[in-house]
Each structure stands twice: as structure tokens, then as C-alpha cells.
Design a binder for these strands. Sequence first.
DNA 1: TAGAATCTACGAATCTTTTCGTAATTTGGC
DNA 2: GCCAAATTACGAAAAGATTCGTAGATTCTA
Lengths: 128, 128
Amino acid sequence: MQSMADFKPTNSEIAILRVLWQRGPSTVRDVHSALSHERDMGYTTVLKLMQIMAEKGLVVRDDRERAHVYAAAQAQAKAQDSLVSDLANKVFGGSAMKLAMHALNQQPCSPEELKEIRRMLDELEAKK
Amino acid sequence: MQSMADFKPTNSEIAILRVLWQRGPSTVRDVHSALSHERDMGYTTVLKLMQIMAEKGLVVRDDRERAHVYAAAQAQAKAQDSLVSDLANKVFGGSAMKLAMHALNQQPCSPEELKEIRRMLDELEAKK
DNA sequence: TAGAATCTACGAATCTTTTCGTAATTTGGC
DNA sequence: GCCAAATTACGAAAAGATTCGTAGATTCTA
């Protein structure tokens, strides 16, 4: 079991990971196109960032083709958990529950969403 | 009503805010002492950070005494909300509920905590 | 096959964050 | 009053994150 204490993507890196999670393995051009809708970044800027991410192990690179194909090294859910737990530690004294309560309180939920959460709580309780 | 879209403390700044929220208005020495248990930071490093935070408006400074007294400019709950919403936007497509579900799933909750959450959900539903 | 387009590599500039040393000032103890 | 201790101000170095230009290689197209 790896600790993953070193999974700390920067904001730009998160933006890139988001694209990779959504699109699956992608080239620099793919990512650049996807990001260009929201961000104003040069092509080589994205390239450089992705090269650095490969060095850091945030992404894996397949360079069999001329246009290298990058994929997120971590599953989205796992990465999300790391980031949630990081925030819990930084600003909620380590309590993920407090974090959850703030999240639920600050954004209106639809009745379906509320139901979904209750269902999840039931499961949690059952698993106990 | 201020938008607060610019409330983006860095990690060190969050560590300092945490102390100010916990202790209330504090001097640089207070904060440095509190942080020294977990971090290895020089006194003037903390001082400089807090001066910068005052410039940015993250803290307010009372300089009537020789040892200036700093206080967090935002209530803890408000700041927590900003950071939660920021994370939701960055990695959960803006959905605070998804964030909450990840938080609840990844850390075991006590029965009391589960009850507390259900109570909160009831309130949310009632308020609708 | 020549030229245009596309790609990677990489150095370097810039900007932000974090760090701390030094100087100057004030306070407190003796 | 004097000296040691504590404080602020501030410059600047170090480290980290972001940006992009240019060079060189490969591929595509006419």
C-alpha cells in the first residue's frame, strides 16, 4: 500500500489531469485543444507541463508514436480522494466529515441528490 | 456584498490562518510558537508572511502595541466554504455534493457523526 | 522531392511563494 | 543609564510554478 503523500499536483496540473480523465489517453494537442476553451495557454506551455508531469510521475507517457500519448497515472477517484483528504487536513483539522458538511450546506442539493446521499449513509452504516 | 473570488491563501498562509482561528488575535511570536510544533520555520519567516498577508487583506493588524496583533480577516467558516468551493470547481466539476460523497466515503464516521449528517440533511430538506 | 505543418526537447524568462539575514528600534531588568 | 532581549522593516536569495521562443526532427501534401 503506497502512501501517496506526495501526490500534490499544482493547479495547472490538475487542469491537465481533468482533461486526461475525461478524454482518456491523449496527445498534447488533444489536451491543448480541450483546455483552450477555458484557458489561454500556448501549445508548448502545455507540452512542457506534461513533460514535467511525466517526470513527476503524475502521468505516464507512451512514446511509440511520434505524437506521444499521455495518460493520468492515477484513477480520478483516487486522486480526488487525495485532494479531499489534503483539504480536510489543511482546513478541517483532518475531519473529512466536517468538510462534507460544509460542502453540503453551501450548495443547494436536488431531492434526488439528497436521496443519493442518504442511500450512501445507509450503506456506510450497514458496513459497520 | 463582496465576491471574495480572490480569497486564495497559499499553504503557508492557511497554516497561519489556522492558528489565528484557533487562538484568536495573536502576535507573530504566538503564531510562530504554535507553528513550531509542526513546522520548522524561522521567526522572521512567519513575520514576513504575516506582513504580506496583511497587505493582501487576509489578516488585519493592530499595531497599537509594540508587538502587533494580527487577526484573521475572514471568519473560519467563510474561508472554509471558499476553499471547499474552490476544490469542488477544480476537481469535481463544480459539484459540492460529489465532493461531500468522496469525503464521507473515505473516512469512517462514528454513529454520532452519521446521525449529525442525517439531521443536517433533514434540515436541508425542510428548508426547501 | 520540396516545402509546409507538426511534433518534441530544452533553455530561459517571469512570476509567485517561501525563506532568512541584517539593521534599526523599543522594551525590560539590573 | 546600560545592556540584553524582543520586535518590526526590508532586501534579497532560493525554490517552485508558469510561460513561451527557438531549434531540430519527422511527417504530410502537392
